[in-house]
Simulated assay, not measured.
Amino acid sequence: MEWMIYGANGYTGELMARYAVEQGMRPVLAGRNGKAVEALATELKLPFRIFSLEQVDSVAAELNDMQLVVHCAGPFELTAEPMMQACLKSKTHYLDITGELDIFERAAALNAKAEEAGIVLCPGVGFDVIPTDCVAAKLKEQLPDATHLKLGFDSRSRMSRGTAKTSVRRIGHGGAIRRDGKIVHVPLAYKAEKIDFGGGEKLAMTIPWGDVSTAYHSTGIHNIEVYIPASPKLVKRMRQMNWFRWLFRAEFMKRWLMKKVDQQPAGPKDNEREQHVTWVWGEARNAQGETVVLREKVLNGYTLTAQGGVTMAQYLLNHTVNGGFKTPSALYGSHLVDKFRVA
């Protein structure tokens, strides 16, 4: 069965392509950078295609013989919409590795069209958001009447260029939480509290992580916040940025910051990924004040993303699934996180 990794020449796309080959799979590698995609495909002895995402009809034509695509080319606020629309036209399952809140909500809004086309739209099949989504689902199983959910993760791994670009493009929009079932935009570092993610108690602050969307769709819990560790100095700096974060919404500022990001290394090296695993934490609370806490120690985020994309592709290639918008835990089950747990 034919499937594609689009953006295969990017840092995470290449990790995914190499892992797929290790698993005995032969995805079609694709992207707009002809030389880079061809070089990787030649090395891995895989078929490849070169195309951009500018015209939906043209993209759909490239996907007509594909059962699914794992979309790895960000920033997804620019690339996800044309790829999802093309997948609807070509009736190709859509997976991606985004953590961008708006992309999850957009995919959810396309649920009816995906059902009609008979395809799955499942963003976030990497570190964004497999482990946190599964922790959310497990907490819901343990506390079915939960009304409040907090999630978070502690990762000391440095960012890839793609992750950094997404972050700088998003910073001007501030933070986000879910309150009473609705996404509410809040200031940067809106809340800060001490949390033991698994490696000891740390100060942490809220971030607009994708689970503000996905955990709601996975669990139905109406109040959701997501946290990462942050020093007091960083919390203070982020709160000061709220006074002028409007500046970061300007395209010229985004372009300048992205050029700065391009000067950084592509992403963490193999030994860094092996050393820097991730703690994932969640706490559910019901109206009576009962709480349940869950912690998972999982692979480095980039390693998990490479393996997660391939794992979900294998699942869809080998199972008949009703079309529509899905979260990773809803598609595969909350036990998906077990595949990426480390001792």
Rank of each mutant, 00 (worst) to 15 (best):
N300R: 09
L46N: 11
K339E: 10
Q240G: 12
L95C: 08
P328W: 05
A343G: 13
F252S: 14
A60M: 14
E251R: 15
K138M: 14
W279R: 03
L317T: 03
D133F: 07
D96W: 01
M4I: 13
A250G: 05
K233S: 12
T163Y: 03
M241C: 11
A20S: 04
V277M: 12
S329G: 05
P123G: 09
A313V: 04
G13Q: 01
E272V: 09
S334H: 10
G324A: 07
G162S: 14
F104C: 04
A8M: 02
K191T: 10
T320M: 08
A284P: 03
Y332N: 02
T166L: 01
L151A: 08
E2G: 06
R18T: 03
S58P: 01
A80I: 02
Y94H: 08
W209M: 10
S155R: 02
S155C: 11
L234E: 12
M159I: 03
M258H: 07
D180T: 06
G34A: 15
D133C: 08
G282P: 07
L188D: 02
A146M: 12
G13L: 00
G7V: 00
Y6M: 08
T42D: 05
H71W: 02
A164L: 14
G118F: 06
G220N: 11
V342M: 13
T214V: 08
A109L: 14
W281C: 08
V186F: 03
L40M: 06
H319A: 03
F244P: 02
G181T: 11
T132Q: 06
K140M: 10
A109D: 13
R255E: 14
I130A: 05
R179A: 07
I171L: 06
E105F: 03
K165P: 00
Q275P: 00
A39M: 10
E43L: 14
V293N: 03
L68A: 15
E105A: 10
E296I: 08
N64W: 03
R179D: 07
D196G: 04
R255S: 13
Q314H: 09
L203C: 08
A80V: 02
L53A: 13
A80C: 08
V70D: 01
K138I: 13
R237H: 11
A266F: 13
T42Y: 01
S157V: 12
Q67H: 13
A8G: 05
G172K: 04
R237K: 15
L68C: 11
D154I: 06
F104G: 02
K35Q: 10
L63R: 04
E2H: 05
E251L: 15
T98F: 04
C134K: 00
M83N: 05
Q55A: 14
A215L: 12
C87S: 12
Q307K: 15
L139R: 05
V235K: 08
V69H: 05
F197N: 00
E193C: 12
L316I: 10
A86P: 01
Q314L: 05
E22G: 04
V168R: 03
I177Y: 00
F51S: 09
A108V: 05
Y19W: 12
S52M: 09
K326M: 06
P27W: 00
T305Q: 02
V298Y: 01
V21C: 07
K297D: 00
I119M: 09
F325T: 01
G199A: 12
S231H: 15
M4D: 09
M16K: 03
E274W: 13
